[in-house]
């Protein structure tokens, strides 16, 4: 995936669509936009940074996982097997991108005064309390020929998903694309284009 920071307007459409697609619990964000300010009034500007799991070639989370619950598929997608995860959170400490979240067991929903909708209840059942979860690159959609929900929903096409070896993505990479925290030697599959 390549994220063009020049195109990102920080609207959080990716954040919301990810939550809709995966029905994650309140407080769990597999995809999010970090926002901050730069400068001082009247010259202050908003700075945004869309983040997700970087699906690293050399994933530290997989190396430190004591049970083998975190694993990398042959196609490079890093996943968590909740049926093996013991919830020790070591992978969360090891991830340099803070891309992982822990399920603390809160099932009250976004509007605790109301009952969960059928969709909320159905989706929450898929998440295992006491385990770690993260972005899956919507691998089920990919297998069906689609693309990750965040890339599909982005109104400015800031998120471009595809084969990094393809001509289209190679052309984008040549525009000065870089990886986050190269000092960590994780070789992420997610690149950023400078603002």
């Amino acid at each position: 995936m390549i994220i063009d920071l020049k195109r990102c307007i920080g609207c959080n459409a990716c954040t919301v669509t990810c939550k809709q697609a995966h029905g994650t619990a309140p407080g769990t964000f597999w995809c999010q936009v970090r926002a901050s300010e730069e400068g001082t009034y009247p010259y202050a500007t908003k700075k945004v940074l869309p983040t997700l799991c970087m699906h690293c070639e050399n994933p530290t989370c997989v190396h430190v996982c004591p049970t083998g619950a975190s694993y990398k598929r042959e196609d490079g997608i890093v996943l968590v097997d909740s049926e093996r995860c013991i919830g020790c959170r070591y992978c969360m400490a090891a991830c340099p991108y803070e891309a992982r979240t822990f399920d603390f067991g809160d099932r009250s929903g976004y509007f605790p005064e109301q009952e969960q909708t059928s969709y909320e209840a159905m989706m929450l059942e898929q998440h295992v309390k006491g385990t770690v979860s993260k972005c899956t690159f919507c691998h089920d959609k990919l297998e069906a020929g689609g693309m990750p929900a965040c890339a599909q929903a982005c109104p400015t096409h800031a998120r471009v998903f595809g084969d990094l070896d393809s001509e289209e993505l190679q052309a984008l990479l040549k525009r000065g694309a870089y990886q986050a925290r190269p000092d960590m030697r994780t070789n992420p599959s997610v690149y950023y284009l400078p603002k």
Binding site: V64, C65, A69, I86, D103, K129, T131
Partner: peptide, 21 residues
């Protein structure tokens, strides 16, 4: 302190010695 201690057996049988846990 574990979130899901019932799966602790997997730690004992993984022998993943790249994990300091």
């Amino acid at each position: 302190d574990l979130g899901h201690p019932s799966q602790f057996f997997y730690l004992m049988t993984s022998f993943n010695f790249t994990s300091f846990s």
